[in-house]
Design a protein around this nucleic acid. Sequence first.
RNA 1: GGGGUGGUAGCUCAGCGGUAGAGCAGCGGACUUUUAAUCCGUUGGUCGUGGGUUCGAUCCCCACCCACCCCA
Length: 502
Amino acid sequence: MSEPQNPAPPQDENHIIAERRAKLKALREQGVAFPNDVRRTHHAAQLHREHGHKTAEELEPQRIRVAVAGRMMLKRVMGKASFATLQDMGGRIQLFITQDNVGDETYQAFKKWDLGDILSAEGVLFKTKTGELSVKVDRLRLVTKSIRPLPEKFHGLADQETKYRQRYVDLIMSEETRQTFITRSRIIAAIRQFMLDHDFLEVETPMLHPIPGGAAAKPFRTHHNALDMPMFLRIAPELFLKRLLVGGFERVFEINRNFRNEGLSVRHNPEFTMMEFYAAYTDYKWLMDFTEACIRAAAIAAQGTATISYQGRTVDLAQPFARLTILDAIRKYAPHYTEAQLEDADFLRQELKKFGLEPLPHLRLGALQLALFEETTESQLWEPTYIIDYPVEVSPLARASDTLPGITERFELFITGREIANGFSELNDPEDQAERFRKQVEAKEAGDDEAMYYDADYIRALEYGMPPASGCGIGIDRLVMLLTDSPSIRDVILFPHLRPEA
RNA sequence: GGGGUGGUAGCUCAGCGGUAGAGCAGCGGACUUUUAAUCCGUUGGUCGUGGGUUCGAUCCCCACCCACCCCA
């Protein structure tokens, strides 16, 4: 296997970059070209918050002295006086720069500085005659020379590919992009706080697994050199988190990355963020109430309300989420199927072929019904809906129902037609779990490459006794998509996976 | 994997068989309260890549690459 090569030096040099490199060279000759002694007193947003409401007459006698720093996004030179707009993490502030106030030398230098350069400025707050809070600058420095030109100052980046590949530029140019990732941070903070408030312990479990487990998915393979053994990037943390229940940590959660070796789409990135959590002495009915409360809290953190808008349609997260069995959901959203057809495995196989699927021969009625649900119904579940009563054969880690044969105490949550969460009462019977693993191994041998491996240590852990519990995984990226009104998972992942640049 | 759309100057976009255009950015100049500042002048392109058709291709055809959207 070949090591990745260092990329060749950029080949996209042009006259603008050459011009700027020459300016940088001149800076180097004058002294420290990249100084790090800049200290600021205020952020832009802070200035607007604290002083934006004041009138020119109120500001002037106060002589409020500030030091700001940021990237120059706009520049308007009018002879011996200029305006420039600095952008920092929280917003923008206008500078008023005159030759009289900063001196001839600095002023002449400033006229050569470029959009995208990072500046620091000190001066006194005032309001322009159009009422914009600004800094009357008397000290001005070029802090970091920018060699590459920014995109067109008004339209910014339009090409989605460039926005994803050069997210740093997208973040400079797009307030909307910045806001999406600020909201993402708020959502995750709110979820973490919600969990901590409910006595959950945050933990971190391995990313490198000797046996991939906890989900039906294809893993990424890697290799541990010192141990000379294959390893897998985790597809789910589930089996490790439940080992912690055995260990006596009765409420645990982890917010972290999972890796699945699958295609890319608007809702799939090969690495994605999942929160999984487990609570002893609870069941899947408690879990549904808890999960929706958590999502509601996240929505309020993101949008201030649980009645949100997604792609022009409202989504009501405030009301209790609907709960339907798989069959109820098909009956409701694909009512042309008869009861007899839905109970007929041969019919379902034929029907699935119409959707271009080739159901594996070992699948039984419940799994076929689930496949039909996925084809006909899932995408229609716009309002939050729990689908319940998943068949045992596709739920190898879930507790079987005490009353319904072949059914587990499991749900999946759908919102805007997308799977957002998956949870169940946990299977804590070590002998049942061992039998389920054996069936998975059989399925794998029958050609199901997403079937699970037998995890002997996990069985050993269960044999010490795991308290009855329920647990759930929430797809954080998809939840962030929902709560930031983003159409693609790539819009909520800072550096989404793309094919290598040509 | 299939279908659709797109790839032209650093950026945003026109052009669509006859030697490649605008705005912004850049460069030179004017301008001491601008707001995507304005005004005058000006540099800059293997028109995604490789073939083909044609007297001539950014434009038509084929293949490929990359992206976005839809479907599987």
